[in-house]
Design a binder for these strands. Structure first.
Length: 396
DNA sequence: GAATCCCGCCAACAG
DNA sequence: CTGTTGGCGGGATTC
């Protein structure tokens, strides 16, 4: 049953992209940061560079980040989401109209469209290649040829997939979409599709969904009675179909805080690979051995003082069925205070049961934020006075 | 068994 | 060439 909880315990969940994303956000959201370094992020979160790319790519697609330079992104924050979504929707509607037409292409939108387009966009190689900007799924006609390898590669980027996925929600009237459907829809953009690998797409979609869930833009659910897992669009602040004008703003505005370094490290306990010996590879993992540091869930509580309007948390699939496993969720009253404080900032408009769910999300978020403390960190000071001592997490 | 999705190899891109 | 980015899919984990 619960044997071997210490050593042989590798939990995949603890390393999920969603969780990592939550940590990423909490780490950069309230630190007066305006710039994010990939190396720094990877180091602080205790994960490989590769994972950061995944997160950053989808975050950028939603306007939370903006690529500034190599190895450098500028932090926009949640405030960038509304605009990004609006643009995305606009773009999606435009596409739907079906405009193979002449490749007029707006060329350069006035001010919208914060992400995408690389200013550099040099003609690789011979350069005899016209700039057939592929930043979108081609209408239907025109097999839209992937001129360069680069374009081809970009075509399948996580970022683009993310945008497509989001557009799907923004335009479709169905409230839930399963990843299979999404994959299908995103694959068959028109008639000419060569992507045969649906499974691969779905896998990517899972990655995206995790990050998006983390942002609370979507939520995992099940299709009405199909019982099949699917995702529901939550959008900005639980409000559906955002208004043309940025709805959120009151609270999400003050990122000019200076909270000390709240280190949110995600120690990566490598799973000693299943391979017995073999190890001649090892790459260049700079990790410092697998610390047996198990995460110590601290009863988070404060936080949010600055309030920013959004909470993030990993999935948090509506706990249904599954027997009364109960367990965590002890100090609810505590967080409730925070909730109230925050609720005050919110618009007293949407008083739905959505609040309850949001609440749950916060709880989750707290937990993940205080997962582990950096070992080398020099900011334990704050944590020690803010967080409660670690509870014995070892469920013995 | 099926649904999820982590891990990290290694190719495409810069510089 | 070295260093970044980030497709891609094997296969471990969960459900």
């Amino acid at each position: 049953m619960e044997a071997g909880i210490r050593v042989q315990n590798y939990s995949r969940k603890e390393k999920s992209l969603g969780l990592l994303c939550s940590n990423f956000i909490s780490l950069y959201n309230r630190d007066g940061v305006d710039s994010v370094g990939l190396d720094d992020a990877a180091a602080r979160l205790g994960v490989e560079r590769r994972r950061i790319y995944d997160i950053v790519n989808v975050l950028e697609s939603v306007g939370v980040l903006s690529r500034k330079a190599k190895n450098r992104y500028s932090w926009i924050g949640f405030s960038g989401i509304p605009q990004a979504l609006t643009d995305l929707k606009q773009e999606a509607l435009r596409e739907i109209s079906g405009y193979p037409a002449s490749n007029a292409s707006s060329y350069k939108g006035v001010s919208e469209d914060e992400e995408d387009d690389k200013p550099l966009h040099q003609a690789p190689g011979s350069g005899a290649d016209p700039a057939s900007i592929p930043s979108k799924i081609s209408p239907d006609n025109t097999p839209w040829k992937p001129r360069t390898v680069m374009e081809n590669r970009k075509e399948k980027s996580l970022g683009l997939l993310t945008q497509s996925f989001v557009k799907l929600f923004l335009t479709s009237n169905v409230e839930t979409i399963s990843l299979e459907e999404a994959a299908r829809l995103l694959l068959g953009d028109g008639d000419s599709s060569m992507m045969r690998n649906n499974a691969a797409k779905v896998r990517r979609l899972y990655d995206i969904a995790n990050v998006l869930s983390s942002l609370k833009l979507i939520e995992k659910t099940q299709n009405s009675e199909s019982r099949k897992p699917a995702f529901r669009w939550l959008g900005i602040e639980g409000k559906s179909t955002h208004a043309a004008t940025v709805p959120l703003a009151p609270i999400a505005k003050q990122w000019n805080k200076r909270a000390f370094g709240t280190d949110v490290t995600n120690t990566d306990l490598k799973k000693s690979k299943s391979i017995p010996s073999v190890e001649g590879k090892q790459r260049k993992v700079i990790r410092s051995r697998s610390e047996d540091l198990k995460e110590c869930n601290l009863t988070a509580q404060r936080q949010l003082q600055g309030s920013k309007g959004h909470a993030f948390g990993p999935f948090c699939p509506i706990s249904v069925a599954k027997g009364e496993h109960e367990a965590n969720g002890a100090d609810e009253e505590k967080a409730l205070l925070d909730w109230e404080a925050m609720a005050a900032s919110f618009h007293p408009q949407y008083h739905n049961q959505a609040l309850s769910e949001l609440f749950a999300h916060y709880m989750e978020a707290w937990k993940s934020w205080y997962v582990e403390l950096a070992q080398d960190s020099n900011s334990l000071e704050l944590l020690s006075q803010v967080a409660t001592p670690p509870l014995s997490q070892e469920e013995f």
